[in-house]
């Protein structure tokens, strides 16, 4: 039994055309026993940046609170909101601080930034549990269903998807991947982030 699989749960993020999407499942378990079907693993960082924290559930809450603390301090002192790539490095260094006694979480980030010229830049990234960053151009996955998510995403994802198409792609990827994973599922939550709004939807999934 791996500690990363103790509570179950998965997160995926994808890049679209001037938009990004991030999705998580809603299960919280104690190994095979399901405890909650409303355990969200994605949290807002700013209104254009979200972070997903799959892994050991105690660390999901601990890190959610720790990132909120550090981002709030950054925002109030810097007098501006944190940029996605800056936040990625904050995540990385926070995890590496615990290099020899890590948080059992593999964070996934998705956000968009606007360049001074007004160009919209989609951003996704993921790290391992000690903060090794992976900036991807297509999609990133993490959690107990990560191997299955890779397979489905590889088949469904294509470049430059519009927000609604990206929503459909990420939703189908998530729903179908978690059905092959005993430790993820029990509903899905999807966020699609565009330059002027965030679409948040909760999807029903198989409850077995």
């Amino acid at each position: 039994m791996s500690i990363m699989e103790y509570n179950g749960g998965s997160v995926i993020a994808m890049v679209g055309k001037e938009c990004v999407a991030i999705a998580c499942d809603l299960r919280l378990g104690n190994q095979a026993l399901g405890i909650s079907s409303k355990f969200e693993k994605i949290f807002p960082v700013t209104d254009k940046l979200y972070v997903g924290l799959p892994g050991l559930a105690t660390d999901v809450t601990t890190l959610k609170e720790l990132f909120r603390y550090r981002v709030n301090m950054y925002t109030i002192k810097e007098e501006r909101e944190i940029e996605p790539d800056t936040f990625a490095h904050l995540v990385s260094s926070t995890l590496y601080e615990r290099r020899f006694g890590p948080y059992f979480i593999e964070p996934v980030m998705a956000g968009i930034s606007t360049t001074p010229g007004g160009k919209v830049k989609p951003f996704i990234a993921a790290t391992d549990l000690i903060g090794c960053l992976n900036f991807a151009k297509d999609f990133v996955v993490a959690g107990t269903a990560s191997s299955k998510l890779f397979g489905v995403a590889e088949g469904l994802w294509e470049p430059d998807l519009e927000p609604e198409d990206l929503f459909e792609t990420i939703s189908q990827t998530m729903l179908n991947a978690v059905d092959r994973d005993a430790y993820s599922g029990w509903g899905t939550m999807v966020y699609v982030i565009t330059k002027d709004k965030v679409i948040q939807r909760t999807l029903k999934g198989r409850m077995d």
Binding site: L33, G34, I35, S36, K38, T58, T61
Partner: peptide, 25 residues
């Protein structure tokens, strides 16, 4: 709130701990 020794916490409509939880849930 359901809380375990690891510090896992979740708000739930009903909850159980111990062997009884396997039947009760």
């Amino acid at each position: 709130y359901w809380v375990d020794y690891l510090g896992t916490m979740t708000e739930v409509p009903f909850a159980a701990h111990g062997y009884g939880s396997y039947f009760v849930l």
